[in-house]
């Protein structure tokens, strides 16, 4: 028991041992890149799009991600995101009632969309993730620029990237026309994470 190591030598060795472990911890952690949990109440996977030339916003309520990120170990950092396409919410019941349809997300056939990074690299104003975005089984490379701020055991990640919905087969047939809904959709990622 510690209480029996009442000698000053005992306290010294205990202190030394803890010190060694403490200084080794960051090295251990960085070699695997830190795993982060999304704080869903403070996070948003949103997007901005246009309908008949007017802007509107929406979000996916349900998504999960395996997030590993360390600024000093980008090689081992990696995001693996899964989005429930049926959880889309644009604040308009009329619009939202169409989005699960076969012409849009076809949520019965494709209940999930994925974003899996292949590389995360530093840029002049932050980082960028190079990954594959899969919607409706259409996979295209998407480079997501983002910033990452770690403070203690919490982190903020903010990123945005504009994608072309038509490349992913979202909005087909009569919905393909850009006057109905613009082809460009800005995906906005605002995450709060904890380790």
């Amino acid at each position: 028991m510690f209480r029996s190591t009442s000698s000053s030598a005992g306290r010294f060795f205990l202190g030394l041992g803890l010190g060694v472990i403490a200084s080794a911890l960051p090295m251990l952690a960085s070699s695997a890149a830190t795993g982060w949990e999304i704080v869903h109440d403070e996070s948003r996977l949103g997007f901005e799009a246009t309908q008949q030339g007017g802007r509107f916003e929406g979000r996916f309520e349900d998504f999960r991600a395996d997030m590993r990120f360390s600024a000093d170990d980008l090689a081992m950092s990696r995001f693996d995101v899964t989005v429930a396409t049926g959880s889309i919410n644009t604040g308009s019941s009329q619009r939202d009632s169409n989005l699960p349809d076969a012409e849009w997300f076809d949520t019965d056939a494709f209940p999930e969309a994925y974003y899996v990074t292949r590389e995360i690299r530093a840029t002049t104003d932050g980082y960028e993730a190079v990954g594959d975005l899969t919607i409706r089984d259409n996979t295209h490379e998407v480079v997501l620029p983002f910033t990452w701020q770690t403070e203690g055991d919490r982190a903020e990640m903010n990123g945005a990237v504009t994608i072309d919905r038509v490349r992913f087969g979202v909005g087909q047939g009569e919905w393909r026309d850009p006057s109905v809904a613009g082809h460009e959709v800005k995906v906005v990622v605002d995450l709060t994470l904890e380790r």
Partner: peptide, 25 residues
């Protein structure tokens, strides 16, 4: 009430008057 955006002639987006409501729409 349908919460559709309204951009007048592609020149200026004007705000919606009411909150979204299916009944009101």
């Amino acid at each position: 009430a349908a919460n559709f955006p309204l951009n007048v002639f592609g020149l200026v987006q004007i705000p919606n008057l009411t909150p979204e409501s299916e009944t009101l729409a």
